[in-house]
Design a protein around this nucleic acid. Sequence first.
DNA 1: TTTAAAACTGAACATACGTTCAGTTCAATC
DNA 2: GATTGAACTGAACGTATGTTCAGTTTTAAA
Lengths: 195, 195
Amino acid sequence: MARTAGSHSDITGPRVREAALRLFARHGFAAVSMRQIAGEVGVQAGALYNYTPDKQSLLFSLLKGHMDELLAAWTAEKSAGDPAARLEQFTRFHIRFNVERPEAIFISYMELRNLSPENFEVVEALRRAYENELEAILHDGVTAGQLEVPDTKIATLAVIAMLTGVNTWYRAGGRLSLAEVEQIYWDMVRRAVGG
Amino acid sequence: MARTAGSHSDITGPRVREAALRLFARHGFAAVSMRQIAGEVGVQAGALYNYTPDKQSLLFSLLKGHMDELLAAWTAEKSAGDPAARLEQFTRFHIRFNVERPEAIFISYMELRNLSPENFEVVEALRRAYENELEAILHDGVTAGQLEVPDTKIATLAVIAMLTGVNTWYRAGGRLSLAEVEQIYWDMVRRAVGG
DNA sequence: TTTAAAACTGAACATACGTTCAGTTCAATC
DNA sequence: GATTGAACTGAACGTATGTTCAGTTTTAAA
C-alpha cells in the first residue's frame, strides 16, 4: 500500500524550521506570524500545521534541537587530558560553534521567555548541563593547582558570557580571522582563571 | 487662567513608563499590548496616547532614557588617575549599575531590533560612546605599560559582555553580596587584561 | 492506471491588535 | 462656585492574528 504517497515533508519540514529560525532571530518570536513563515517557504499558513502542532511547539523544537546539537557536538569533540588543555578546547569549541550559528544562538538567549514553563524547564536543564561541562573543567583545574578561581560557578558564567559575546560583533570576512579571534579570547580566558 | 487644570500627567506618565519597562522585559515588546500596559496603570488604552505618540516611540524613549542615564552616571562617577584604578572603577560601576536595573538592561539588549532604523542609530551611538569609555581606559593602560591587551576593541567587548552577564544570575539576597561579586569580577577582569 | 495517503489550498473562525476620537470627568485657577 | 483645559473613557475603525477544516492536488506504490 501507499505508505508514503504524496510525501515530501522531508523537504518542506526543514524549510519551515529554517524560515522560522531566521525570522524569529530577526524580528522576535511574537513579532513573526505563521503567515510570514509560510510565505518564506512558499506555502499557505495552514500547511505549517503538518509540521508543528502550534507556533509555541515550533519555537520549542528549534531551541531544544539547538541545545541537543550543542551538547552532542561538545561530547563528540571533548577529550580527556589536563584541565588547561581542556579549557582551551572548550573555549575554541564554544566560539566556533556559536559563530557558525548566530541565529540559533540568538533565539536561544532571547526567546526563552516565550516558552511555556514546562518547555522552559527542558531547555534550561540542557543549558545547565552545558555549563556544568565548563565548571567541571575549572574545578579540575583548581584541584590540580593549574587554575586559580575563587568561585567556579561564577567563573563558568563569566567565561561563557564573555565567549558568547563574540556573536555580537564577529562577522566572517571581517578584520580578524576566526583563528585570531579564538587565540585572543583564549589568552583572555586563560589569564582570567589564573592559568 | 487654568494652565494646568486637571493635570496629573506627572503621576501617570512615569507609571506608564514603569509598566511598559516591566512588561517589555518580561514578555518582549511585540508580545505586550497597549491594553496590557494600560491595565497595569489602571487606565484605558486610549489614555496612553497622552504620553506617547505610539508604541514604537515608547520603546525608543525607554531605551534612549536608559542609555542617557548610564552615560550620565558614569560621567558623574569617573575620575582621572592611573588606568588600573580607572578600570577597577569602571568594572564596579558597570556591575552595580546593571544589577540595579535588570529590566532596563534586558530590553536594551533584546529590543534593539524592534526600533526603527533611525531610532536604532541613536541608541547604538550611545552604546558605542559607552564602550569607548572602557576602550580609552584599556588603551591608556597599554600605553602606560600597566595592561597587556592584544586588541583593545575586542577586549572592550569581551569585558563588557562578561560584566553584563552578571545580570543573568545575580539576585539580591543570594549566596554572594554585591561587594563579593564586584571583587570576584574585578579579579577576573584585571587578570584577563594582564593587569 | 488505479488508488490512497500525504500535502496543500483557501476560506473561515473568533479574537486581538494599535490607534483615533467625540464625549465625559476631574482638578487647579479665578 | 464657576470656568477651563488636561486627563480619561468607551466605543469604534480596519487590520491582523493563530488555528481549523472540507475539499483539492500531488505523489508514489500497487
